[in-house]
Design a binder for these strands. Structure first.
Length: 274
DNA sequence: CTGGATGCCTGGGAGC
DNA sequence: TGCTCCCAGGCATCCA
């Protein structure tokens, strides 16, 4: 599910956690949580006893910052879900829940991830978070055209592969890569270092616009994505190319082509994207 | 170094 | 119904 707009929507839908104390934390699968020291995570690593100060996001990663400075990073992978349940309410799906946190107002946070491609990482400090996030490129929602131009100039890969590379820019996944390339009129198979600076500028604006609109629509729900409040997103209604291979281009009516690029299904218009 | 292929998981849908 | 096959929003790791 979770590309930048979905993770940002989850972050916003967790706002009620801020200022609350986590009174207990349980981890049901040790292999879903990695600690800095490599040992098995204890409740304290999962912020038990801590007060939540802030919820941060970089790319597709979410960080829960405690007042003590301790940090819990959540990566949702393909099927990860965080749900914040009000006191007394029950989660409808209880299988594949790997961790549960109890808050001092009686609400509970659950982490569910059927495919287990996601996970939790415990960090000792904000400095450790900065260190971890230094491996990510600039956040795609706020990146500058120069960021993309520099990354593109030094890369011989196809431009779509670059957009999916979290070390080049953070937050774009398969859906929004295709949508942004379409919006910018750039063919996904172009070699990155042959995309002109003015095209990089257009592409950057397209990425930021596509992501911002998707955040406004609270993300894309293709199958099972919901925010922490259980609400589905609406951004899938705006998709121009993703999932529309074989259908008509919304611009020109040409049949959209579906190919495999960077090991991912890629849909584009041969006429609108050059 | 770079970038392409593979593997990790479960579940839903298509086709038989 | 039930079986098999294919595919999926991500990414780490292994090779050439």
């Amino acid at each position: 599910v979770p590309e930048l707009p979905e993770v940002e929507t989850v972050r916003r839908s967790l706002a009620a956690m801020i200022g609350r104390r986590i009174v207990a934390a349980r981890l049901f699968r040790a292999d879903m949580c990695t600690t800095a020291s490599g040992r098995r995570a204890r409740p304290a690593d999962l912020l038990a006893g801590e007060v939540v100060r802030e919820l941060m996001r970089r790319g597709k990663q979410l960080a829960i910052i405690a007042q003590s400075g301790r940090v819990l990073v959540v990566h949702l992978g393909m099927s990860g879900q965080l749900r914040l349940l009000k006191p007394g309410s029950k989660a409808q799906k209880t299988n594949h829940i790997h961790a549960v946190w109890s808050l001092d107002d009686g609400s509970r946070l659950t982490f569910r991830d059927p495919r287990r491609f996601g996970g939790l990482w415990t960090l000792e400090s904000r400095a450790a978070l900065e260190e971890r996030w230094s491996g990510l490129g600039p956040d795609a929602l706020t990146m500058s055209p120069r960021d993309l131009a520099v990354a593109a100039a030094g890369s011989r890969r196809v431009i779509k592969a670059l957009l999916l590379d979290q070390t080049a820019l953070a937050g774009v996944g398969n859906i929004y890569a295709d949508e942004a390339l379409f919006a910018a009129g750039v063919r996904p198979s172009r070699r990155a270092d042959r995309v002109k600076p003015e095209e990089c500028e257009r592409l950057t604006r397209a990425i930021r616009r596509v992501l911002a609109l998707a955040v406004e629509a609270r993300g894309s729900t293709l199958r099972d994505y919901v925010a922490a409040d259980g609400r589905a997103g609406q951004a899938q209604l705006r998709h121009a190319v993703y999932g529309r291979g074989g259908f008509a281009c919304v611009n020109c009516g040409t049949v959209l082509r579906s190919v495999s690029l960077a090991q991912r299904t890629t849909v584009f218009c041969i006429r609108c994207q050059r």
